[in-house]
Design a protein around this nucleic acid. Structure first.
Lengths: 336, 336
DNA sequence: CTGTTAGCGCTTTCAG
DNA sequence: CTGAAAGCGCTAACAG
């Protein structure tokens, strides 16, 4: 790899001049500019970005930190993040926190010299962690999918509780009263918020909460399948299932179908996410769309903006939309 | 952000000494080491990785370049790449080539100073491109999912043609003769190799190739659905469908089911990939597993090894395995 | 319009 | 065991 000095020698000019033509700034005589260009070309010269970054304190890189690479939305998130970054000609450095808050905290601090901004999709860091990071870091940070209590961060989040409420209201409208619930992990704000949505909806409808009706899954099809099997085996009656994501809803669908129970005639099912595959199952799944792609785009673009200018902190809130398909029917028509 | 100089002042030592304790090399008196440590801690000092990289010419990062972020395997690939890199305490820089060979070529060259090795998952670069890169680059490169003609590169690939052959043989065994084919993109080696698999299998079985039986999809469910619709609308007879991936097979399944055609009683369907969802459709899809995760792991680990030592080039070849489920039945039992 | 001179933050001989 | 000094490749005043 040739360096700027090689170009200097070949073109017979100083480093400053070469630097000027590389960056297209300052005044350079047309003829010498051409000289330099042809020298660069002849050598296959390419400026060393590391050196540029060190000298300018600008890396043109965005850091993306997630708690864990197994997260359910990781694929789409990463895809959109990579696309948005690329579009703005920024590089992307991707890191995970091994699901360990302390490790994750360290990782973020490490990123400081290597990025112009960080997007954080964390499910292990506490609010205080994030607060401390915010104070300690000299680069801006955007928190994705997390409702921060105080609006002192840039954040992009989803109304988790409302997503379930939308589903419950839809089910109530169709006359359902006995609604089973398949949750996701309960050790993080998302799971808790969604369960609150379930409980509060029941309360608002004056229906008693029954512990037997709620089973815990881990957001994959298998756990949805198993949760539903349990429900069935325990002989609990229910006319509908609210699953905390599409995968588990689809797993439950499989369990029901296997058992000879018709969906939606005998049991209605709903999910959350609007996973692309949900449309291809039979019956097509009714769900609440979670715009993870749009949210990620927003977060990365915000981070990119913050690289160059400071903006007052703002919290972008996304709300889910009901996508009605064929996995829910009215209890009244279903009864017979 | 404090620098090494701040630590020097606070601890009352020179840069060299601080550097020694940072890296744990050379001889440092226990007491001064402790001094330095506490100074670092007090300042919240963290070495600047960029500066370290510039000074040592070691970046501890792996570059991953894909042609396009929309690739069908991109999600899993990225996930595994990120995980493997993280495991080895390497950073990952992810970039795409906008599906443009020239751009992609440039991007890879840019990465040279920022990475210790590059993994390339390209569908636009020609073999000569890769050859030129290989000569031009001072860092090692691992080519993923690409059979290179000469074994002069490190590569990890999948036997594309064999995957289809396995499926065809399975179908022949079950008595199928009229086998429709839903391909993927035909502008790259993968699509071409798979189609060759289809054609060669037919030839080996002395069955004429009929152009009407092959429809082109783009690897997503929708295109599989449409391709199957076309087949149906054109009134072509077939007893089985070989789709070039699971998504399209599942789309075709949907089209068939909608039309009131039973799978596998009337038509058998097979895919490629062993997508996790394939198991949750009814009937569960028979497919050939494509170990993209294992392949990615292999590629990244190889790249990481190459950061520190040179190895003779080797080509790792992965072969698909038939995963028999319920979407294929024998024509003989199906006839009635 | 161009060159000189300091750095950016860290590593690494080489003396002592 | 420790420090001085040179250097990684590039940028950025400041002179001229």
């Amino acid at each position: 790899m040739s360096t700027i000095l090689d170009v200097c020698k070949l073109a017979g000019v100083s480093k400053a001049t070469v630097s000027r033509v590389i960056n297209g700034i300052g005044q350079v005589k047309q003829s010498t500019r051409e000289n330099v260009f042809s020298a660069m070309k002849e050598l296959g010269y390419r400026p060393n970005r590391l050196a540029q970054a060190l000298a300018t304190n600008k890396t043109h890189t965005i850091g993306l930190v997630v708690s864990d690479f197994d997260g359910i939305h990781f694929g789409l998130l990463l895809k959109q993040a990579a696309a948005s970054a690329e579009f703005a000609k920024k590089q992307l450095i991707v890191t995970d926190g091994h699901n360990d808050p302390d490790y994750e905290y360290e990782v973020i601090l490490q990123l400081e010299a290597q990025c112009d901004a960080v997007v954080l999709y964390s499910r292990t860091l506490t609010d205080e962690h994030i607060q401390r990071l915010h104070e300690q870091l000299t680069i801006p940070i955007v928190v994705l999918n997390r409702n921060m209590p105080e609006q002192c961060f840039h954040s992009v989040s989803f109304e988790q509780e409302a997503a379930v409420t939308i589903l419950m209201d839809h089910l109530f409208e169709k006359g359902h009263q006995e609604i089973a619930c398949i949750t996701g992990h309960m050790d993080n704000p998302t799971g808790k918020a969604r369960l609150n949505g379930y409980k509060n909806s029941l309360q608002a409808a004056s229906i008693d909460f029954k512990n037997d009706l709620v089973k815990h899954g881990v957001y994959d099809m298998k756990s949805g399948y198993q949760a539903c099997k349990e429900l069935l085996n325990e002989g609990i009656t229910f006319t509908a299932i609210v699953a905390f994501n599409d995968c588990m809803a689809l797993g439950a669908l499989k369990a029901l179908t296997e058992t000879g129970i018709n969906v939606p005639e005998q049991v209605s099912i709903t999910g959350i996410d609007n996973d692309p595959v949900s449309e291809f199952f039979t019956p097509r799944l009714t769900t609440v769309g979670l715009p993870i792609t749009a949210m990620t785009k927003q977060a990365i673009e915000l981070a990119i903006t913050l690289c160059d200018e400071t903006k007052p902190t703002h919290s972008y809130q996304y709300k889910g939309q009901l996508i009605e398909r064929e996995s829910v029917s009215s209890v009244y028509t279903a009864k017979n």
